[in-house]
């Protein structure tokens, strides 16, 4: 699976979920239609997005997705066309949400991220856990070996559903 596209760089640490999608848009009972409000909580969000129309790879700062648990942040990014986020680190809940929504979370050291922020185009080979910026040398990164399968093939809920018998057995023996 190759995830590739244009790059939007937002070189800022601690972009929280209120900035990715403000609470006033958390009023739906489905996961659709959040993209139009993506980054509305970022003071210069609209300008940044229009500077790179159609960008599919977000390159950003440390602790991306901190704050609330809202999966709406991952939904908004996906709906806006993003397929991967590259950052030095992610907040835990956002990271889990990214995996379940096949928004590839790529963690790399700050200086590598700084270089990638200057790229025009990034191609990520999810299975091989490597990426290339503007056709350059491959850069290796690491995904969670279990959650990677949810990025490649979805099926998070099916995976858990298949565990129900062993969970019930465990509970009975508890």
């Amino acid at each position: 699976m190759i995830v590739e596209g244009g790059v939007l760089a937002i070189a800022r640490a601690n972009i929280d979920t209120d900035q990715i999608i403000p609470a006033r848009y958390l009023t739906r009972i489905d996961a659709n239609g959040m993209g139009e409000h993506c980054f509305e909580g970022l003071p210069d969000g609209a300008a940044l997005l229009s500077s790179r129309p159609g960008a599919a790879i977000l390159v950003t700062g440390e602790n991306f997705g901190c704050g609330s648990s809202r999966e709406h942040a991952a939904w908004a990014l996906k709906d806006r066309g993003f397929r991967a986020v590259i950052a030095p680190s992610f907040a835990r809940i956002f990271l889990e949400n990214a995996y379940t929504n096949a928004l590839v979370p790529v963690a790399l050291p700050q200086q590598v991220v700084d270089e990638l922020a200057r790229a025009q185009h990034i191609a990520i080979d999810v299975a091989a856990e490597t990426l290339r910026a503007d056709g350059g040398e491959p850069i290796a990164f690491a995904l969670d070996p279990l959650r990677k399968q949810f990025v490649l093939g979805g099926g998070f809920m099916q995976y858990l559903a298949a565990k129900i018998p062993s969970v019930r057995a465990w509970e009975a023996a508890r």
Binding site: E71, N97, T100, L146, L160, K163
Partner: peptide
């Protein structure tokens, strides 16, 4: 702990979470 919507759904469906 706090979790996303899908993980919560998983816990409601299967009684458990996948956690590091």
């Amino acid at each position: 702990l706090g979790i996303g919507t899908t993980a919560q759904a998983g816990a409601m469906l299967a009684g458990c979470l996948i956690l590091q």
